[in-house]
Design a protein around this nucleic acid. Sequence first.
DNA 1: ATGAAAGCGCTAACAC
DNA 2: GTGTTAGCGCTTTCAT
Lengths: 346, 346
Amino acid sequence: MKPNRKSPTMSDVARKAGVSAMTVSRALKADSVISPETRSAILEAAEELGYIFHAAASNLRSQRTDFVAVTIPSINNANFADTVAGLSEILSGRNMQTLLGYTNYDVDVEEQLIEQLLRRNPQAIVVTGGHHTARARRLLENARIPVVETWDVPDQPIDHYIGFSNADAVRAMVDHFVAVGYRRIAFIGGDAGRDTRGSDRRRGFLTAMRSHGHDDPCLIAAGAPPISMREGADAMARLLHDHPDTDAVICVSDLSAFGALTECHRRGIVVPDQIAIGGFGNYEIAGMCVPTLTTIDAHAREIGLRTGSLILDLLDGATGTMAIDVKPGLIIRRSSLRETSPRDSQ
Amino acid sequence: MKPNRKSPTMSDVARKAGVSAMTVSRALKADSVISPETRSAILEAAEELGYIFHAAASNLRSQRTDFVAVTIPSINNANFADTVAGLSEILSGRNMQTLLGYTNYDVDVEEQLIEQLLRRNPQAIVVTGGHHTARARRLLENARIPVVETWDVPDQPIDHYIGFSNADAVRAMVDHFVAVGYRRIAFIGGDAGRDTRGSDRRRGFLTAMRSHGHDDPCLIAAGAPPISMREGADAMARLLHDHPDTDAVICVSDLSAFGALTECHRRGIVVPDQIAIGGFGNYEIAGMCVPTLTTIDAHAREIGLRTGSLILDLLDGATGTMAIDVKPGLIIRRSSLRETSPRDSQ
DNA sequence: ATGAAAGCGCTAACAC
DNA sequence: GTGTTAGCGCTTTCAT
């Protein structure tokens, strides 16, 4: 096992290097005034002792942690990973870190998480989505740090937001489907209530369909978010069974859309000739599968980059509340473009 | 903007509740001796003031942080996400958190990350893989906490490990391909040197092929890890062009294998009749795509669960060094099973 | 069941 | 360029 004596502190390094603890502290900061010889002697002593800087003590005294807390729904989602990557890239330019937490698409988990994260005294907090529990709202409102909501346009922003309307994004896709001739369009998404972005997308679907004169479009509930490929496939199977006249389906994400696509393959149903499919997120798979998937690019990385810049500006003393809309892009691919017109092929 | 006065401390809560700070501290711990009335009065006062517990101060004084540091290659990988989920599940039963860092498949980044993580005084550290820089090894050896290497069987374990031989896992797949009649088998993987697990898989492929009497099998380098679907597709295009007699290909992961599969679809090449494909990782897509992909299940979640249990045992005072092999499973699916024998169909 | 005193390891503030 | 002092907010320890 391991040696059991106490970890060396700055005092130990100071003693070994023949200086004071304060000088050791300066030697370990990049931008402090100290003679180069003293510094290198100290760094050498530190390395020999196996000294590890004690972040908690530093944070306590200096009242800064140099990190930004971030909540995202899942550890395993390329969209949110891209947002975090963009954010981290900007923050690392100022030697700041991101402290990540996962809500599992659940606002109650989010509430717990926000409290956990605030206990570690971040310099700012970024949350995914604009729907929160009452207590989570209060925690964020009372936090004495910048708060940024992302991936949404909140009804009542807490502080700043950088995102887009999930409902409007889906409306754009419905408009496209209608424009190219689809009429009996269904929606595959999560069960109502839990994933707020998914619910917003379903709501946008309904509104758009009604504005096109389709009052009661078919909605398939595929389970609790996130909707997996398998759940997308199962939902497609149900849709084909219960509503065989459907000529297009919009899925809450590319992953469920891909699952739906494979179900069509298995049944020998040709996409898009017999049924069109649309997804959401522009995941890599949407551009790779056969046929390629029509989808919506939320500009995940851009959201992260802008969030990072905003936070740096705010920490530099910028004032005012920022409300930034990052307009998603509709990406039209093969899964919604058939050669013949819909009417002809039915 | 936000109120700018100082955050309330335990003393503020104590004053409001008419008790000492020490009593507030007790009220906030679940298992401390305190009268129920005092506690509820204190909790109410804390909530009213918007008090947030200051983790750094607590950590400094108590010398415990209740978190475990974890390095994984990527934030966006279902295999590593499953391992982290398993680990977190076990740790959360003891109110411990995971502090995650991402190496981007780079041992130099890993070295930086390990130092960053150790500064926050974790109670244990888990790293993915058994290859590290010399300095990273030293940091881990000198850390006064349990160290667990995962997803590998290290040549020289630092402390404990829970994983499997990536080389042996691929050997099992080669044996299967040979057993069902494939002979001209190629490998698609990352460029040599960077992703150590991928390199181990390539090495296992070469060793296995030689043991079957194929001395110079075809290796396609697809770029720096992680290998994307697109890179898998591009590699397959090169393979088909340069080595048209290939009858099977093993890919370093299911994602690149799926890319390779789509390239075959685009060219009208039938899998597995004209070429067989194998992947690695048993990602969801491997069981969904058409045809389904033969792959290797590394039991990612199981690795995380066992790592968590081991850490709890060690923190409880267990001694001895654990070396646990979690044997991967070969999952044979349609992409490597043709109806007719290979010789007949050529 | 509760309180008082001390101190975890670092750095702000000031002195020289 | 370097040292001294004090204290960040909490919890250990001991006392009552």
